[in-house]
Design a protein around this nucleic acid. Structure first.
Lengths: 199, 199
DNA sequence: TCCACTGTTCAACAACCGTAGAATGACCGG
DNA sequence: CCGGTCATTCTACGGTTGTTGAACAGTGGA
């Protein structure tokens, strides 16, 4: 051919291969979970040798760590209500297939130290939600909110149960909003409100 | 020893061994998921040879099927509100460690026909909830309720995230009640109610 | 041009898995 | 008391996995 040098320098080529491996790993981890994803399968998907994957990432655990790195979703929201922030975050995770999230979620349900890592990553988010709730049981309420988010994602993408699999994100969000409201702001329905007890 | 005959006849002995194997399998499947529990480990837990497990159950898949058989929770509730029935069901699943449920939930994320079986078992429950909801989007609402239940159980037992792991079932139930109410009966909080549009 | 570097492949190992079939030994009906 | 049945163990096979280290080949600076 006429090009004087290949389009990619050596370093670029390597970076690109690494990236491809990570993408394939993410995909497979999300589809199959940690155990059923083999290094050989990842390599085959990319079209390279399994030894190369080992050479770059050292170990399967390490490959998983790199593939499951979350962009550290910060739940950033300036003066907005926590409910809106949470719902927006959920909405974005309901759009398309959040491969990275699924890789983590699916694998942490079978792999113990994947769960450990995720727990560490989710802890700050949880306490962020907690501080935004003005009741004594704020911690529990925050955990419930988190559980609902996880439940919806798992049911939609992993369990594929019921109508959740093909519902539009907007519809889900709007149905969930009053639910989140009662959990986050502790305003009970009028009939259930208690006569302001101790202090 | 002095007992003239062993306490257990041959058939009893066998039945008891089978039962022990099933219990150990359930426990391990719940703790480790399908892939990481090995037949050898199940056998070692019971104190028998791996070949015996194979001899009784034929195949690992079959052992899992038997171990993960659910008592077909019927969601039975006569004239009660669907919300109460759902919450009662959740409460019972929140008491102690529902080993069978965990085995299924954890494993259905990696084992294909475990997922299929569970989906088949959950379908009637879903439509049962659906028929109890008087809105057009009843199906989606039912799915959301189901997702919340699953989310709470997964977060409590599998992810062990936040305060949900050690909260009392009653506290969880009571926090969830208004949430379920708004989803199941479609009565919006007063501030969000719409001015009765079409029809 | 030459040579070191490095991206990449090849071949192999040790461990472990599910599974199969022969062997063992105690129980129980006749 | 005897012979078969049956619960149980032993041994082994084929396959897959994570992992390793040697070998190969194209690149790029001197």
């Amino acid at each position: 051919m006429t090009q004087p040098s290949p389009r990619l320098t050596r370093a670029e080529q390597r970076r690109q291969t690494e990236e491809s491996i990570l993408a394939a790993a993410r995909q497979l981890f999300a589809e199959l979970g940690y155990e059923r994803t083999t290094i050989r399968a990842v390599a085959r998907t990319v079209g390279v040798d399994a030894g190369l994957v080992m050479h770059y990432f050292g170990t399967k655990d390490n490959l998983f760590s790199r593939a499951a790195e979350l962009p550290a979703a910060e739940l950033s929201g300036g003066g907005e209500e926590i409910v809106d922030v949470l719902l927006a975050s959920l909405a974005s995770r309901l759009d398309g297939e959040p491969v990275a999230s699924l890789a983590v979620l699916r694998s942490m349900l079978t792999n113990t130290d994947a769960a450990e890592r995720y727990r560490a990553a989710a802890e700050p988010q949880l306490s962020q939600i907690t501080t935004a709730i003005p009741t004594e049981d704020a911690e529990l309420r925050a955990s419930l909110l988190s559980a609902i988010v996880h439940g919806v994602i798992i049911e939609r993408y992993l369990l594929r149960l019921g109508r959740l699999a093909d519902a539009s994100p907007d519809q889900i969000i709007e149905l969930l909003r009053p639910c989140f409201q009662t959990l986050a702001t502790a305003d009970m329905p009028p009939s259930t409100v208690r006569p302001a007890s101790a202090d």
